[in-house]
Amino acid sequence: MTSKELIKGTLRVIVLKLLSEHKQMYGYEITQLVKERTDNEIELTFGALYPTLHKLEAEGLLVTKTIVVDNRARKYYSLTSAGNKTATGEVQSYFDFVKAMNLVLKY
């Protein structure tokens, strides 16, 4: 399992990237998708995920929509236009960062 610290630092990018690929997602969907893509390597806890989602919402990068599904409310998150820009930027800077890290660690 990947260390919590690393997930914490990158969760923002993960959420932004996933949402930029999908029109809208809800919390559970995000955790499942991450699990799937990483082959159970990264498992997001709600302790980390929901604060991040809400923070992004408060920053105006996400908007939410609540739909009643199967007798319960489900909250979907999607990117705002500002969120889209931020997503591109942050993913790019993450790759730059990884490149730099590689240089440092593989030296």
Binding site: Y26, T31, H54, R72, K75
Partner: peptide, 14 residues
């Protein structure tokens, strides 16, 4: 609250 509903949904999905 808002968050509560969200968590309920999450738990329900699991």
């Amino acid at each position: 609250g808002d968050l509560f509903e969200e968590l309920v949904d999450h738990v329900c999905c699991e």
